[in-house]
Amino acid sequence: MSWRLATVGAAMRLTDSARSIRLDVPGWPGNLAGQHLDLRLTAEDGYQAVRSYSIASAGPGESIELGVDRVPDGEVSPYLVDDVMTGDQLEVRGPLGGWFVWHEDDPSPVQLIGGGSGVVPLIAMARAHRAAGATSRFRMLVSARTPEDVLFAPELSALDATPGDRFALDVVYTRRGPEDWPFPIGRVDRAALERTTLPVSDSPAIFVCGPTGFVETVADHLVAIGHDPDRIKTERFGGA
């Protein structure tokens, strides 16, 4: 494993605080849905910072997509969300992690649960699921502050609107919902999970990702509801 040169191919705003960044990485061997990479920035005096970012894209090819949400006062994320431009160079190491990964030959129904930027590895899974024409059932729950804070919202809505029941999207808003939103506003709790996620009887493979506190709360509720802990895979992004 070694650091590879990456060039920013495009950067596109996803929300007020998040950006999609396309990287061209010569020699990138492709990646599975859900994997991440390490990204290294070097300042002119040699100072370096390394952070992990999930890959929003999946499959072969040397062009990959990241989705980065700005952490206020952070060292790396504000640079990626606000400063980086097409043509800029940085280094990446990957693809990384074989655990938090969806394999297209897995026939199980899948429940994806993402908070904030935790949507990033999950959209890679949803994209891989569609690209493979897989017939397994995918259900996705996103937790976001407001409707304007959902990463990849147009794409998720389009997937949701596709006829058939292969993909279904639910959103829980923690601060403010759309007008006339019939459901409670607030953190994902047991009731919200029971309302929006696949039942225990489906024995779904579950992927939970996002801020550490979110992941731990959701995973605890899922176990309390009766899901087998061995069916729940988690990835903690840090923060509160």
Binding site: M1, S2, H36, L37, D38, V50, S52, R93, G94, L96, G97, G98, W99, F100, T212, T234, E235, R236, F237, G238, G239
Partner: peptide, 19 residues
Amino acid sequence: ERLDGNVLAGMLGELFDFD
């Protein structure tokens, strides 16, 4: 930062050629 073992993948990848 409270994280989980996924974050170790890159570093361990410098030492081993498996995940």
